[in-house]
């Protein structure tokens, strides 16, 4: 199995930003330029999340999504503010191949996962998790790491798998944007809990962090953003490094 490397773009339209700890946004660049840059570098997928859509409770901005996806010939996953099966449909018509959902499913309507999976297939439904670590458990957060849900991450991932999700992205509210390594224990436990692909996100600050999470937690994919945005590495360099250390990746 080849481990996928996903370039993750956090959008506060019209810009891609980088939140630290899910707050303190820094402007990085334009979505279409960054998507194309990371595509050319060899990304296996691009993931675009409008990180303020849920928080502001506003409509998804389709125009920016169409622009970001126009020059890339790899899967394009899109999320942020998705509330209905119609939203899924509109996103696919704007160029998305997968739709990422979190807030609405956690807070209001877990069944949206099964409805969307029935219509578009499991492979098109990605559930994003914002996990906050407490003493001996992880809690699902929503609205870009701001709102508590009371749900236990390890119970929620099992539930979304049963509902028909095709993939789970595990973000860590504590690690995101800090560049100090992944929450390996969290990702490992999620990988062991479910049989669908798991994407490790949040925390990569150097090449070794990414190797570490792949070796120890065995996710299906790793999502990176800060290390690319701040020119710490390119996807080409990352893939060469991983290959050198025995991790199979697509060229």
């Amino acid at each position: 199995m080849k481990t996928r490397i996903i370039a993750k773009l956090d959008a506060k339209p019209p810009y891609i930003v980088k939140p630290v700890h899910f707050e303190g946004l820094r402007k990085i660049g334009r979505p279409d330029e960054l998507a194309e840059r990371y595509y050319m570098q060899g990304a296996d997928e691009i993931m675009y999340i409008d990180i303020v859509a849920s928080l502001y409770q506003r409509e998804i901005l389709y125009k920016h999504i169409e622009e970001a996806g126009k020059d890339i010939y790899i899967p394009f996953a899109v999320g942020g503010g998705v509330r209905s099966v119609e939203d899924f449909s509109k996103l696919f018509h704007s160029g998305a191949d997968k739709v990422v959902i979190n807030t609405h499913a956690v807070q209001n309507d877990p069944e949206i996962i099964s409805r969307a999976s029935r219509v578009f297939g499991a492979q098109a439904v990605v559930v994003n998790i914002e996990a906050k670590k407490w003493d001996n458990w992880w809690e699902c957060y929503t609205d870009c790491g701001r709102i508590r849900s009371g749900r236990n991450v390890l119970e929620w991932v099992e539930e979304v798998e049963k509902l028909g999700a095709g993939e789970i992205v595990v973000q860590s509210v504590d690690k995101d944007g800090r560049k100090r390594g992944f929450d390996i224990e969290l990702i490992k436990q999620v990988v062991e809990k479910v049989d669908i692909p798991v994407v490790a996100a949040s925390g990569a600050g150097k090449l070794e962090d990414i190797l570490d999470v792949i070796k120890k937690a065995k996710p299906n994919a790793v999502a990176v953003s800060s290390v690319l945005h701040y020119d710490i590495t390119t996807i080409g360099q990352l893939k060469a490094f991983l290959t050198e250390h025995g991790v199979e990746v697509a060229k």
Binding site: M1, K2, R4, D44, Q123, G166, P197, A250
Partner: peptide, 10 residues
Amino acid sequence: HGQVPHMGFN
């Protein structure tokens, strides 16, 4: 023996 959906380059 792997995760399904089969997802990624192969």
